[in-house]
Design a protein around this nucleic acid. Structure first.
Length: 579
RNA sequence: CGGGGUGUAGCGCAGCCCGGUUAGCGCGCUUCGUUCGGGACGAAGAGGUCGGGAGUUCGAAUCUCCCCACCCCGACCA
């Protein structure tokens, strides 16, 4: 490709809307442009990268027996109503105004629709169906360039099995395929256990890349490799325990004290002497959650424990359920009180509070707290479970090392869906005995643009992007300096033809009026793995210069040796070592 | 959806508080010349509904109100 004939609008300055590195570099390198918030156009160079990523994904999906589909993004709304997901997605789902269509945010329904019409016999299984296709999600706040958009490319795959063992196998195949895909793309990633959230299902793993631009928070143990989304992450819990001298329960007047901090200041006590209460509503009933000190409730863990969605109680409900306003709520007398109005109120406490005594907590009377609370004496039937959000530096639950907690970008997610969609949509098969069963499904996604963005996040320097050969828009960036000199132009044309004939993808900077510095800077910004620099001085001794973008290493090569040298370089140096 | 911020030429910005010739600057772009291995120099040019609408005023980029877009933090994130 000739630079002078290409649309590669590089930018010298950083556009003001870009904050994260990959976004800045994608814009500056002329690979993407924003059309609207969270909606990006891929320019030719950027789209070449997308195609390379897609091709790697195809090869690995095909290798596990996947069959590629291309489903419509425009979907009849009624299919989405079969599974109740029009409501579940809410405002995230784009609706078409002048016909009853929605823009698909994912494709479980459509794949299940096709499966139920065709996969009728146990002999038809297993199946793996996938596509690489545009998804639409009305994100309230798109951000970080292509990392979170309203329209994005996703490789989504779906497995159909007749047994749970079959699902395990399909899931395992995807796990292996995903590792190969991310390895081939040159990404450093790790795999975490995750909450399956509203997708429903029985198990899931996320493929994550550590990044400050990430929107997920994960806990990771370097020592044993334990990794989990903080939604589900566990650490070694040490209950605060009991103090020897057991105090009497006593009421304390605490005017205008609302927070644990204020309570500690007011009574001159430590956080570890306090139990914070939060009221959640689960299936219409109040549940009191007790946390040690100022620790936050992990709502994902709570939902998992209770089974079903929870929401924090509204201020009016607090008074109704407890008789007190926020800040004065506590476990003592809660169950008895709420039994009058809304059914027996459960109390669920974090494991750190297991059987603790001498605690301070709200008295369920505004502006009053209790001191000397003994959870084994003063509140009945407390359930204990892990409800904390893991923090950096806590002990790993699997070994004795310390956990790190950091942000990460989710690249891929694999789910064991089970029968959620097949049951609601009536996708069944007949087994050998002629009995009907719902198909057992899995669902597996990869964010294609995110691979590109994450790669750039991990492979850049102050001058620009540093591509590996696998994803680079071109293998070689050929530069002719001062092309007004005939011998330079002639040599460049020969090299260009020669390398192109050998199936190298060459970007030839043939701009006549661009200065050397401009070409060097654009080449570093665009970041092809190899640069070939042709200048008149070295050409006099029949040599050109080769520069390895990644290392900055440069050396002279004679024209005759050039293609052999390139071959060696591509084999030896230009693929990032895998995980 | 809550909080904060920005919107002036393709890009980056100044001007706005305190209204007043023809709205500036750097980069980029066009033409000519010189240069030619790390974003060169000189000269001459082109390019603007100052985000949109309404209002105040003799006069609005500037003041007021409404709307829109975009960014950041939070909430949300199947």
């Amino acid at each position: 490709m000739r630079f002078s004939k290409s649309f590669i609008p590089t930018l010298k300055e950083t556009p003001s809307e870009a904050v994260v590195k990959s976004h800045i570099l994608l814009l500056r390198a002329g690979m993407i442009r924003m059309l609207s918030a969270g909606i990006y156009s891929f320019l030719p160079t950027g789209y070449r990268v997308i195609r390379k990523i897609s091709e790697i994904i195809r090869e690995e999906m095909d290798a596990i027996g996947g069959q590629e589909f291309h489903l419509p993004a425009l979907n009849p709304k009624e299919i989405w109503e079969e599974t109740g997901r029009v409501e579940a997605f809410g405002d995230i789902l784009f609706h078409i105004k002048n016909r009853e269509y929605v823009l698909a945010p994912t494709h479980e329904e459509i794949m299940t629709f096709h499966a139920r019409n065709v996969l009728k016999s146990y002999k038809d299984f297993p199946q793996i169906w996938y596509q690489i296709q545009t998804k639409f999600r009305n994100e309230p706040r798109p951000r970080s360039g292509v990392i979170r958009g309203r329209q994005f490319l996703m490789k989504d795959a779906y497995s159909f099995d007749i047994s749970w063992e079959g699902l395990d196998k399909s899931y395992e195949l995807h796990d292996q395929a995903y590792r190969k895909i991310f390895d081939r793309c040159g990404l450093k990633y790790f795999v975490v256990g995750a909450s399956s959230g509203a997708m429903g299902g029985t198990g899931s793993e996320e493929f994550m890349v550590k990044s400050d631009a990430g929107e997920d928070t994960v806990a990771y143990c370097e020592n044993c490799g334990y990794a989990a989304n903080v939604e589900v992450a566990e650490s070694k819990t040490h209950p605060r325990g009991r103090e020897d001298k057991n105090e009497e329960l006593r009421e304390i007047h605490t005017p205008n004290i609302r927070s644990i901090d204020e309570l500690c200041d007011f009574l001159n006590i430590k956080e570890s002497q306090c139990a914070k209460s939060r009221i959640y509503v689960h299936l219409g009933k109040p549940v009191l959650i007790l946390m040690l000190g100022n620790e936050e409730v992990n709502e994902s863990k709570l939902e998992k424990y209770l089974g079903g969605n929870v929401r924090p109680a509204h201020p009016e409900e607090l008074v109704e359920f407890t008789g007190a306003e926020a800040g004065s709520i506590g476990p003592v007398g809660f169950s008895e009180r709420s039994s009058l109005k809304a059914g027996k109120g459960r109390i669920i406490a974090d494991l750190k509070l297991k059987d603790a005594n001498n605690l301070y907590s709200g008295a369920n009377k505004t502006d009053y707290h209790f001191g000397g609370i003994d959870l084994t004496r003063d509140a009945k039937n407390i359930e204990y479970t892990d409800l904390r959000i893991v923090e950096s530096g806590e002990e790993c639950s699997k070994c004795d090392s310390k956990l790190q907690v950091f942000n990460a970008i989710e690249l891929g997610h694999i789910f064991k869906l089970g029968t959620k969609y097949s049951e609601s949509m009536g996708a069944t098969f007949l087994d050998e005995k002629g009995e009907e069963h719902p198909i057992i499904m899995g669902s597996y996604g990869i964010g294609v643009e995110r691979i590109m963005a994450c790669f750039i996040e991990q492979h850049n320097d102050e001058n620009g992007i540093v591509w590996d050969a696998a994803l680079a828009p071109f293998h070689v960036h050929l530069m002719g300096l001062n092309l007004k000199k005939e011998e330079v132009a002639k040599a460049c044309e020969e090299i260009y033809k020669n390398l192109t004939d050998k199936n190298y993808e060459v970007l030839y900077d043939d701009r006549i009026d661009a200065q050397a510095g401009v070409k060097f800077n654009d080449a570093d910004l665009l970041g092809m793995p190899l640069q070939i620099i042709v200048g008149d001085k070295k050409l006099k001794s029949n040599q050109v210069e080769v520069k390895i973008r990644k290392t900055g290493e440069r050396f002279d090569v004679s024209l005759e040796d050039l293609s052999k040298k390139l071959k060696d370089l591509f084999i030896d140096h230009l693929i990032t070592p895998q995980n």
